[in-house]
Simulated scan of single mutants.
Amino acid sequence: MRYIFFFFFVLLTLSGCNKHEEPSSNLIVSSFKLPPKNESAASSDAKDEMAAPASPEIPQKIIKEASLRFETDNLEDTFNRIQSAVTLNKATIQNDSEGKDYNNIYRNLTIRVPSQNFDAFINAISKGVSYFERKDISSQNVTEQYIDLTSRLNTKRKLEERYLQILQKATKISEILEIEKQISTIREEIEAKQGQLKYLESRVSESTVTIEFYKTIAQKEGVKTSYGSKIWAAIQSGFYSLSEFLISIISVWPFIIVFCIFAYFIRKRFKRKKK
């Protein structure tokens, strides 16, 4: 009986020890949290922190562009009509060029239109055109690219904040210089992404419309105006040629006199031989 009671006592003692040791070991393990080993891990943690709160849905980011080419009977009237559409839709003429080819006179316009007025502007231009030689309208969805740039920008900003916190605690000059170097690199990346985001937002907010319109020079008009001008040009050309010939003769008069004297003596000599 003594051995049996002793055996039960040992079992109870061991079970009690195990119950007291387990909580203490769990407390020690849970009190430590390993920091991220590198910058990519820190970046992923920052992304997780950003993804945690529910963010509002970002509206679609669409880049719209159009290229138009058509013929017109009156360049000035067409330009005035386009300018009225520009004013009505709060657009701006970015480039304006005109010129003349062999058989037509043309004018090219590059116009920036607010995206919300893009369709209304195209409709206003199309009303006075019988047909388009070229009418290309394109749209590009850049929502995913916009979200990606925004996410990367926020991640870089959080990383910059962490380095600034570390910089406040640094004491060695070597550590301070190294941290400032990292901050400078991150700042350049932030500015580059801000520039990309600003450019993307500009293209989304304002659409680009290129318009080329021209007037063909009629062949009959060319014939009517060219016959008289050709005759007058021929008369002038003949007069100028005759004047140049006379001037050239006058300019070589000494040689003509010498030639005449030389020819006179030769002729006189031949006459003497005949006698």
Score class of each variant (00 low, 15 high):
I179D: 09
Y131H: 10
F9L: 14
A263S: 09
E71G: 11
Q94P: 01
I183V: 05
E188Q: 13
F132T: 00
L153F: 04
R134W: 09
L200R: 03
K193G: 09
K64F: 05
E71Q: 14
R203N: 03
A234K: 14
V29C: 12
S97A: 14
N95G: 04
T210I: 08
S55H: 13
F132H: 01
E244R: 08
A42R: 10
Y131Q: 10
S237G: 13
T216V: 15
I257R: 12
S15L: 07
T110D: 15
K230Q: 15
K273C: 08
E201W: 10
I211L: 03
L200T: 01
A51I: 04
F132D: 01
L34R: 02
I105R: 01
N154D: 08
I261P: 05
I105L: 04
K273W: 07
S24H: 14
R267I: 09
L153P: 01
I111Y: 00
I176E: 11
F118R: 00
I62D: 07
E21I: 11
Q168A: 04
S130D: 07
W232F: 14
G238T: 04
D96H: 10
E189N: 05
S229V: 06
K181M: 04
E178L: 08
K224C: 13
V10I: 13
F239K: 10
S44D: 06
Q94T: 07
Y146W: 13
S44A: 09
E21K: 13
K215Q: 06
V142C: 02
Q236R: 15
V86T: 00
F259I: 11
R2V: 03
V258Y: 14
K198E: 07
I257P: 01
I137W: 00
I256D: 08
I256Q: 12
E65M: 14
L200I: 03
S30L: 05
L27E: 12
A234E: 13
V29I: 13
E57Y: 10
A52R: 09
T72K: 00
A41M: 05
R187G: 05
L200N: 00
F32I: 04
G128R: 04
I183P: 02
Y3G: 08
N103S: 15
Q94N: 06
L167S: 02
N123Y: 02
Q165F: 09
D96Q: 08
S126D: 01
E160Q: 11
P36R: 00
T110A: 15
I179C: 14
P23M: 11
K47D: 06
R152C: 02
R162V: 02
Y146K: 06
H20K: 12
D101R: 12
T210N: 11
Q145C: 06
E201Q: 11
K127N: 04
S126N: 00
A52K: 07
F255D: 14
R203V: 02
L11P: 01
I235W: 09
A218D: 09
K215W: 02
T92W: 12
S43D: 04
Q219A: 15
F270S: 14
Y163K: 08
V142F: 01
I93S: 03
Y3F: 10
L197I: 06
T110N: 15
I147N: 13
I190Q: 05
Q196R: 06
A52L: 08
F262I: 11
Y240P: 03
S30Q: 10
E161G: 13
N123M: 03
I190R: 02
D96I: 06
E76C: 12
I231Y: 15
